[in-house]
Design a protein around this nucleic acid. Structure first.
Length: 202
DNA sequence: GGATCGATCGGCT
DNA sequence: GCCGATCGATCCG
């Protein structure tokens, strides 16, 4: 059960994003393990990335992105959803990887209760869906995912060979042309749990 | 299958 | 005051 150390997350953000595919996100909730294989992620890199919450500089909300790698950045959106990022790169530089979709592995029954749906491909196939399934909210913002007693962490799983990986523009990003087109989304080609399967050539 | 819309509220240019 | 790194329901063809 190899829990990833901080060094894994301290590397270049695009490298970490790619390398997170196939790994296992684990949430310990009420003493029970809920887990899923990471099948889709997006990178948000620096204040110059106009799609990033760090584009206006350091604020109370995005503070975690400026902190040490291997910590969670959890934010609320549209007043009702949560999204989970893992902070990457050197401390002081705001960057993170958004976890967009999982293939559920452990704790499916609990996830079904929390989500109110039975279909496994609908349990964790979206950034807010996986947070609801795993009980992730702002209380986990800035949580250290490398601590021994962490309730949220990443295990080694099985890395994904390049030929099974697809790359493309990030979902839900509008405005600035560079931000819109940067190929900073990574997913498992054709996997049923990816959040937006059949748009474009995924 | 695709387009559209409402929910709901914290953070901010 | 405006708007969002979303989701699910609804309507249409």
């Amino acid at each position: 059960m190899s829990r990833f150390p901080r060094d894994f997350f301290a590397r270049d953000t695009l490298q970490v994003a790619r390398d997170l595919l196939g790994r296992v996100l684990v949430r310990v909730l009420d003493g029970e393990r809920l887990s899923g294989r990471i099948v889709e992620v997006e990178a948000y890199i620096g204040e110059d990335d106009l799609a990033s919450h760090a584009r206006f500089g350091r604020t109370p909300r995005n503070e975690a992105m400026y902190g040490p790698p291997g910590h969670a950045y959890v934010y609320q959106i549209y007043g009702l959803h949560h999204c989970l990022n893992i902070v990457t790169g050197p401390e002081g530089f705001p960057a993170a990887v958004l976890i967009r979709a999982l293939e559920p592995l452990e704790g499916l029954e609990r996830m079904r209760e929390r989500r109110g749906v039975a279909d496994p491909t609908l349990l964790t196939s979206g950034p807010a869906r996986l947070c609801q399934a795993m009980g992730i909210d702002r209380r986990l913002d800035k949580a250290d995912m490398c601590a021994l007693d962490a309730a949220l962490f990443v295990e080694a799983g099985v890395p994904v060979p390049d030929e099974q990986m697809a790359t493309g523009p990030r979902v839900g990003v509008q405005g600035d042309q560079r931000a819109r087109t940067a190929p900073w989304r990574f997913c498992l080609r054709g996997h049923p749990c990816v959040s937006r399967p059949r748009t474009r050539d995924y």
